[in-house]
């Protein structure tokens, strides 16, 4: 049967092809239009994984503005702020996260880290103690505490904490 643009079959195939092509183009556009926060979140994740924290902050912030609120998003945003030298913004983010998860020692420790990064060692120390109240003897919290004490010049206390982490008498 000779090929003809006018034939019913050809028109049918062309219509299908057109619908398929349109779907391929429109589906992502529709997804971006209706779920921009997810798109920004994914882009933020890509930037974070590539170590581009400035870019990550931009995308995560947009995701937050567009309504995405999740544990992971706030955690990554806080980390990105600390890594880009804006620990005070990190504090704000981790405070927000702690409000949602007051019993989570990991979040409390991140908050302590943000305080430390902004040179508020006293507040950092208090917050590490909070983390240790939530998870007694947690090595990561003890490690951060020893680092803060070292910065404060309380060397013997810091040495004893390292000894405690290692289970050795010093």
């Amino acid at each position: 049967m000779p090929f003809s643009l006018r034939s019913a079959k050809t028109r049918q195939y062309l219509t299908f092809a057109f619908i398929l092509a349109a779907s391929l183009v429109l589906t992502p556009l529709a997804y971006m239009h209706f779920n921009p926060e997810e798109v920004f979140w994914r882009k933020g994740q890509q930037a974070f994984a590539a170590g581009d924290y400035e870019e990550a902050v931009r995308y995560y912030s947009r995701a937050l503005q567009d309504g995405k609120v999740s544990y992971m998003l706030l955690d990554r945003l806080g980390d990105s702020y600390i890594s880009t030298g804006s620990p005070e913004m990190g504090v704000v983010v981790f405070l927000k996260l702690r409000k949602k998860h007051p019993e989570d020692p990991y979040v409390t420790l991140k908050l302590a880290l943000a305080y430390w990064a902004m040179n508020d060692s006293r507040k950092a120390l208090e917050t590490v103690e909070d983390a240790l109240d939530l998870k007694a003897g947690w090595r990561n919290a003890l490690f951060l505490k020893a680092g803060i004490l070292t910065g404060l010049g309380e060397f013997e206390k810091a040495i004893n904490i390292y000894g405690r982490i290692l289970g050795e008498e010093l």
């Binding site: 990991y106 090595r139 982490i165």
Partner: peptide, 16 residues
Amino acid sequence: PPDFTEDIQDWQARLE
């Protein structure tokens, strides 16, 4: 910032 996603290893504490 240390990465607290994993527990601090002995060698890290020992190095400090």
